[in-house]
Design a binder for these strands. Sequence first.
DNA 1: CCCTTTCTTTGCGCTTGGTCAAAGTGGCGC
DNA 2: GCGCCACTTTGACCAAGCGCAAAGAAAGGG
Lengths: 236, 236
Amino acid sequence: MLKAQNVAIDISLVRNLPLFRQMEPAALARLMTRATPRRVLPGDIVFEQGAEAAAFYLLLHGRLKVSQVTPDGQQVMVRVVHPGDLFGFARALARPDYPGTARAAVESIVVSWPMTDWDAVVENNPRLAINAMQTIGQRLDEAHTRLREMSTQEVERRVAHAVLRLAEKAGRVEATGTRIDFPITRQDIAEMTGTTLHTVSRLLSSWEGQGLVEGGRQKLTVVDAEGLARIADPES
Amino acid sequence: MLKAQNVAIDISLVRNLPLFRQMEPAALARLMTRATPRRVLPGDIVFEQGAEAAAFYLLLHGRLKVSQVTPDGQQVMVRVVHPGDLFGFARALARPDYPGTARAAVESIVVSWPMTDWDAVVENNPRLAINAMQTIGQRLDEAHTRLREMSTQEVERRVAHAVLRLAEKAGRVEATGTRIDFPITRQDIAEMTGTTLHTVSRLLSSWEGQGLVEGGRQKLTVVDAEGLARIADPES
DNA sequence: CCCTTTCTTTGCGCTTGGTCAAAGTGGCGC
DNA sequence: GCGCCACTTTGACCAAGCGCAAAGAAAGGG
């Protein structure tokens, strides 16, 4: 009974996600009966790098940080998972294991399906397959954007871009500006932009001095997005 | 008649590609009747960045270089297309235009389908959809690998990795080592690794001095892959 | 409420690798 | 066969930003 209720709630929550757009309600309902919801607390790990990819996930609520550790121990943040995002679909990459570790930044709700369902789900829901492909495609696009930035732009521009993207994807409007809606450290931003927390700290301090942002412990508010955009793209 | 013959040739050529694995022969045959083959000469452009994405492509023979130009005029090489690779499927990314320019490095054969076929192709060939998704997924994986390298490794290691990958993907065994099987400039390698042609030239010169590679105009042969691998991953 | 932990700030020296400059070289077209 | 052009090499200089070090501040736990 409790489970059935969970599922019912889920359907109303997911129906409007881009991922499920144009899917038949019956097919979606069938899909959701196979799903398992799970609540994760800040710091909790949803799956770990290198572990067997036993399930794929959808984030309903909250934020996750996905990071990789290089063989020599360096951390890189691959991406932030926002509500509505599909993640951990290693199967789609033809991988047996998860390439990164997903950790909750705030209290979050995820739903998961056994990875063994993946092929069947894709084959039986062509509409979902197309949507999922677009999701992966967009992720590829983002990765290329970051590669392009890393290749051609100096650190300050990269950090500015990263902060603007965070504000856009995870911003909440507050009195003084757009607050990034989950705890994020300078270290995190450094890992997203391929620099060090020292440099990020210096940049944010400088920007704070110019009234562009407001910082704080695990906190960041964009005060003057225009001004930041001018740093991110000087000539435009 | 001529066209029919082309198609017949195509099927035998593509049947064993991973992309078409497990597809029904009839479905594959149907698919190929919609395909248009085209021969491109070195330097020819298959599609251009920003142009309307009117078709998606499969490379049958040759090599293509896909590059992007940033708003401020810098070039970045996104990837090299090898035989058997699907490319230019902007539609999968839900984009109306091509994100980069594909240019033949050597004489090549591509086949194309009208982009309007994409959704139908995917919906009617679930097996192909899964394979295509894996293709995109692997590309995402590669992009993340490059991001990780760009974030954490110094230039020398990145270039070593890039050269090793090229040798693996496009190497032809010759007397003195593994020759990269298409014309590639220092500038190209620089664009793949986020550095300058000067630095690449310096590195290759130094490596040549150590007997690791042999250079030449638009030419590169890996003589000592082990030695290069030791530069790419020092501790392993 | 204090102590510990984690996160942030800031200074300083130094290295990597970019920029600028210029000469060298192989290949191709005419 | 000559000359041009694209590609490559090498040197000298310089600065962005990293590593190292150390102190300060905000949370959180006991």
